[in-house]
Design a binder for these strands. Structure first.
Lengths: 117, 117
DNA sequence: AAAACCTTGACACGCCCGTGGTAAGGTTCG
DNA sequence: CGAACCTTACCACGGGCGTGTCAAGGTTTT
């Protein structure tokens, strides 16, 4: 049987058993269960847990950020809305021909405005 | 002068003046300032504030999520790390040829593993 | 059967997020 | 000049996040 119990998984990944349960509830790494309900972590889950640690510690992001990124991936509407908001950055009006930048903004947003009301 | 003061901007966008200052501190919408330090909201900022409201209320995301999305856009390393983590989803091992899925995981992560230690 | 695991559920705690309010002081308008 | 605005800096507070610990009960191992 190629699967570790929660305490063994905790030892090889650096997370506490408590956090492994939390990570599961957050939908980030969900191990399969044994017949009696024990969590069973396979090689894929272990790898994912280790790189999750690298992500959090290496970039200072929270588990909820990873959860949001995961949500972004699965929800095309959300992704489109967020991207079009980011595209419309009104930074530095002076980097744009001064006569145009007002209309330029408004055009950028026309599509989005129709969608979200 | 085509720019609104903070209270006027608040009235036309639905945010409170307090929140407009908060949103600025979060790096999401940063208006330019008058000579004496007053915030001046132009058409671009106003539009951005309204669509930000749509994003938050329409999708139930927090301002910090929008901030994270913005950070993702600007930081290529972060984006690559997050994407490769999401790509390695160990969901449903049975959807993949059973002999391959273990190596498949490991290869997917090799690059990332070298970068974050 | 006892030890050493596992499960879920609860209480707790510190910190950050999203808000509001208020105070002390500068600016603009009438 | 006075009213009405603006600025920054604080205090406060409810809620969620990331953790730990503990209790009550089921499972696996020896």
């Amino acid at each position: 049987m190629e699967a570790l119990t929660i305490q063994e998984a905790a030892e090889t990944t650096g997370w506490s058993p408590r956090m492994l349960r939390y990570i599961e509830r957050a939908g980030l790494v969900e191990p399969r269960r044994s017949a009696s309900g024990y969590r069973l972590y396979g090689p894929g889950e272990l790898q994912r847990l280790r790189t999750l640690g690298g992500l959090v510690r290496g970039f200072g992001m929270g588990l909820s950020d990873v959860g949001f990124a995961q949500r972004l991936r699965g929800d095309a509407d959300l992704r489109a809305a967020v991207e079009s908001w980011l595209d419309a950055e009104p930074r530095r009006p002076q980097e744009v021909p001064p006569a145009d930048w007002l209309r330029w903004e408004q055009e950028k947003h026309e599509k989005l405005l129709l969608e979200m009301t």
